[in-house]
């Protein structure tokens, strides 16, 4: 019994410490982005589950909704990686402002396509 509980408590411990260090070390702006990413992921999963389990009937609407989630997730993830101070060395030439401008432009183009698909 003891060896069985030890790993599970170990994993829960490590998970808690991971969460704790995340909460402590991540800046509030990055948390903001992370919450948005989480939101996009959940929305996408729900839409995909609906498509699989119930129906894909207005298929264009599914494509638009799911595509917007995925596309926005990609754009936001790249924004996050570019504005993260830890990646400063990686993106020397890309200022956070530039990254945000890219994000805004990419989002507008993405939304244009999404509204096209929405029908």
């Amino acid at each position: 019994m003891a060896p069985k509980t030890a790993p599970s408590s170990g994993t829960s411990n490590s998970f808690q410490s991971l969460l704790k260090s995340y909460i402590e070390t991540t800046s509030s702006r990055l948390k903001l982005i992370d919450v948005f990413l989480l939101f996009l992921m959940l929305s996408g999963i729900i839409q995909f589950a609906y498509c699989i389990l119930v129906t894909n009937f207005p298929f264009n609407a599914f494509l638009a909704g799911f595509g917007s989630c995925v596309g926005q997730f990609v754009l936001t993830a790249s924004l996050r990686s570019q504005v993260n101070p830890a990646n400063r060395a990686e993106f020397k030439d890309v200022s956070p402002e530039r990254a945000f401008a890219d994000f805004a432009l990419g989002s507008i183009v993405l939304h244009f396509f999404v509204y096209n698909f929405l029908g």
């Binding site: 919450v35 948005f36 939101f39």
Partner: peptide
Amino acid sequence: VFWPWIVLLGFWFEI
């Protein structure tokens, strides 16, 4: 499909 909005807004309020 709207409940992720609760997550989003809840966490944003907290942050």
